[in-house]
């Protein structure tokens, strides 16, 4: 029963996640806003449509959206979710987690270059540049987790992390903030990217998918929503008490809170100037390094 709820939640969460962000932004602007499940309607509409495909493109353009979706789903199987647990769990599974998303990114970038459009080349170039900052920072975060718990799989790490108390609260907060920066970057949200703009020279992710339409666009749309939920679930993992009946409720609550937080951030601040974005993402590196330093000084009795 709990398991079914969990699976159903993850399937529909991407739509709700985006719906909540939009609703919060609308409320903040004093508008009524679209229905909460508007993203679902959009998704279903796209699935019913046919496609227009550029003559310049090759098979890569067609396989990228499907691989994108499958890699996000696969990454979900590695996370130890409440009520399900981790479907795949072994030593070093977090490396596979990061690299599965990397495979999707590679194909998405190559697919956008496949169209030969200068706009999409620009988006790809920026996407990959910002990834070069996010990825090492994420690995510092993972390394800090391994240092803190002495474990090397998500399942074992979170089991140990959430049963211990004390100074880990500080670390968890540092992790949470750096993960939120990662969510904003990887999920292409303000201040890194603005998903609402079309045809502006500052956009990143939206411009990479300009040539997609119909079911393929629906796949991309869904997988980027699912990726947001995936990273928020990772964030939620830090705060779920292990072996609790409420863990599922807390999990769902945190995901929606993250969505609300993203909505609030988007309402409050504008997109950063392109040259300032790296500085913002480097904040994640800095926070992860601080977390590492704190952990090492606590565990090893000073540097």
């Amino acid at each position: 029963m709990m398991m079914t709820v969990q699976i159903l939640f993850i399937i529909f969460a991407p739509f709700l996640f985006l719906g909540i962000i939009n609703r919060i932004k609308a409320m903040w602007a004093g508008r009524k806003g679209s229905p909460l499940i508007q993203p679902l309607y959009d998704f279903l509409r796209l699935l019913r449509k046919g496609e227009v495909i550029s003559k310049t493109t090759s098979i890569i353009f067609k396989i990228a959206p499907a691989v994108n979706l499958s890699s996000v789903i696969f990454a979900f199987l590695i996370l130890p979710l409440p009520a399900i647990g981790a479907v795949i769990s072994f030593d070093g599974d977090f490396i596979l987690f990061a690299y599965a998303l990397g495979l999707a990114k590679f194909l998405a970038i190559v697919a956008s270059l496949d169209t030969g459009s200068s706009f999409e080349g620009m988006g790809a170039s920026r996407e990959v540049t910002f990834s070069t900052i996010v990825e090492p920072a994420f690995f510092i975060l993972l390394g800090t987790l391994a240092l803190l718990t002495g474990q090397t799989s998500f399942d074992a790490i979170f089991n140990l992390l959430n049963s211990s108390a004390g100074y880990t609260v500080l670390i968890k907060i540092l992790f949470a903030v750096s993960l939120i920066i990662m969510i904003l970057t990887e999920g292409s949200r303000v201040p890194v990217d603005d998903p609402n703009t079309h045809l502006e020279l500052t956009m990143i992710h939206e411009v990479m998918i300009l040539d997609y339409s119909g079911p393929d666009l629906a796949f991309i749309f869904y997988s980027s929503g699912l990726k947001l939920v995936l990273l928020s679930s990772l964030l939620a993992e830090f705060f779920i008490p292990s072996n609790s009946v409420f863990s599922l409720i807390i999990f769902i609550g945190i995901i929606f809170l993250t969505a609300a937080l993203i909505g609030i951030i988007e309402s409050l601040i504008a997109r950063a100037r392109m040259s300032h974005v790296p500085q913002f993402i480097f904040l994640m590196t800095a926070l992860s390094l601080i977390a590492f330093a704190v952990v090492i000084s606590f565990l090893r009795g000073g540097l």
Partner: peptide
């Protein structure tokens, strides 16, 4: 989902 759908070839969207 692409079965029986119209898939049109066109030039790259040039804005």
């Amino acid at each position: 989902f692409l079965k029986n759908k119209k898939v049109k070839q066109f030039k790259t969207w040039d804005c």
